[in-house]
């Protein structure tokens, strides 16, 4: 089963995934159109800043068992059997925020949503782009990610790939392959130094 896998070491913090997510969950389906809608569609993926201001694309992990589902007394949260996606039913949500209290990742937001009931705040989170996937598309965040931070594959495939990369990096003899390209490593070193001297 394919899912969105996050490779955080590759995130450059460009926030393209956030724009694509909001657009995918708009009524118009276009970026410009989405910015003119009322209510404004909002991203379900949240790029945060790490200790060294590196990006991290934080999104619903669709946990199993899902703490949010267990905490939802209204029964608004359920899991789609064949995809494993944890979904919030906007019509059943009572905006109590119990799911938010339970969520270990902090990826649930509360606002009026273009695809939810009008004039009412509800809990909103990643739905794995279900409506795109049934049309044969991949999730919008993965589609726009140019650095390979977000991939659409089975976790096993992702782990096998990573295993190969780690194994090659660990093998002795011959020129080692750097974990990240030189330019990326250089920029990271500079950013770390800037922050480190600020704490003196």
């Amino acid at each position: 089963m394919n899912q969105v896998v996050v490779h955080p070491e590759r995130c450059v913090g460009c926030m393209q995934c956030m724009l694509a997510c909001a657009t995918a969950h708009s009524q118009s389906g276009t970026l410009f159109g989405a910015t003119l809608e009322q209510p404004l569609p909002k991203s379900r993926i949240h790029v945060g800043a790490g200790r060294f201001n590196e990006g991290f694309p934080n999104r619903c992990r669709h946990c199993d068992p899902a703490p949010c589902q267990a905490a939802c007394l209204a029964g608004a949260i359920n899991r789609v059997a064949n995809t494993g996606t944890v979904m919030i039913n906007p019509d059943r949500c009572i905006n109590c925020a119990s799911c938010a209290m339970a969520c270990p990742y902090g990826v649930i937001r509360f606002h009026e949503d273009p695809l939810g009931p009008p004039n009412r705040q509800i809990a909103v989170k990643c739905d794995n782009c279900s409506s795109r996937v049934v049309r044969g598309l991949i999730p919008a965040c993965v589609e726009v990610c140019k650095t390979g931070t977000l991939t659409w594959e089975t976790v096993d495939d992702a782990m096998r790939r990573k295993n190969r990369e780690v194994s090659r990096a660990m093998s002795s003899g011959g020129p080692g392959q750097p974990a990240v390209p030189d330019g990326v490593a250089l920029l990271k070193t500079i950013k770390q130094a800037e922050l480190e001297i600020g704490e003196r």
């Binding site: 450059v12 460009c14 926030m15 800043a49 590196e54 990006g55 991290f56 650095t147 920029l187």
Partner: peptide, 13 residues
């Protein structure tokens, strides 16, 4: 503004 866009930060956009 954090994280600032890495493409822009690297001059790659």
């Amino acid at each position: 503004q954090q994280p600032q866009c890495g493409f822009c930060d690297m001059g790659l956009s």
